[in-house]
């Protein structure tokens, strides 16, 4: 499935602000894995996701997906294989465009965008059904500009857009961090439903240890740009927050505060 081979990334190399964000990550995901990623600020979680997505190139190492080498591909070409949801609800959707226009953009991910007509009626019907599964009433507001939606609604929509064309890999970068706890739970529940329905291989970064334990079949913890801990199988199932704290002496304010 996904394979990261000795991936390195340093920002501002050769300056006083030099920051080695990812320092030799090796990671292999199996088909259908739902991996949660935790780690303190600056541990390299988001950088790792961005390196997979191709937001910036790797300094060293390789990114492979189903044996295809993604390393030389630009971001927009990798998009064919990836569904992505970001931390900032504003980032995943175009505010000045309608809900159905945003969905139409996502529906064409990985396809040629030609001069065919934008949205067919059959497509509209599909979008309506898909929006109804969110349970937010958005199916009756298909022509509303996305900028008028709340953060939670936008995040749910981005999630739908990420999975509208089944992605080989779903990348969730703290996608509930900007939401209130109730909305965050709702979006996570939707995430779980979509992952289950389409058997999506998923990589989810979170700052919330409870979520990291509750969701997924595997948990990795990053520290100083490396994978420090990798828990899977039975051990992951029986994991508790106190286990994590005790076992790995995690001293990170934000993680503790989010308990």
């Amino acid at each position: 499935m996904l394979e990261l081979r000795d991936v390195h990334k340093t920002f501002n190399a050769g300056t006083v602000n030099e920051k080695c964000a990812v320092d030799g990550v090796n990671l292999t995901l199996e088909d259908g894995d739902f991996v949660t990623v935790i780690g303190g600020n600056g541990a390299g979680k988001s950088t790792m996701l961005n390196l997979i997505a191709g937001v910036y190139p790797v300094d060293q190492g390789k990114v492979l997906l189903n044996e295809t080498d993604l390393t030389p591909l630009p971001e927009y070409q990798r998009a064919k294989f990836l569904g992505r949801v970001f931390q900032d609800p504003m980032m995943g959707t175009a505010a000045t465009m309608e809900i159905e226009e945003n969905l139409a953009l996502a529906y064409r991910r990985g396809k040629v965008r030609g001069l065919g007509h934008g949205i067919s009626n059959a497509e509209r019907k599909l979008y309506r059904e898909k929006l109804a599964t969110l349970g937010l009433g958005l199916e009756d507001r298909m022509n509303t500009k996305v900028g008028l939606l709340s953060g939670g609604q936008r995040q749910a929509l981005t999630l739908l857009m990420a999975t509208l064309q089944k992605p080989a890999l779903l990348l969730l970068d703290e996608h509930t961090a900007a939401l209130d706890p109730k909305t965050a739970d709702k979006v996570l529940q939707l995430t779980q439903e979509m992952v289950d329905r389409d058997h999506l291989t998923t990589l989810m970064v979170t700052h919330n240890m409870k979520h990291a334990i509750q969701y997924g079949n595997r948990l990795i913890m990053m520290d100083s740009g490396r994978v420090a801990v990798d828990i899977r199988g039975e051990e992951k199932k029986n994991l508790t927050v106190s286990d994590l704290l005790e076992k790995f002496h995690i001293e990170n304010d934000r993680m503790l505060l989010s308990e």
Partner: peptide
């Protein structure tokens, strides 16, 4: 950003 994530050049 969103456009690139959706595979738009």
């Amino acid at each position: 950003n969103m456009s690139r994530a959706q595979g738009i050049n």
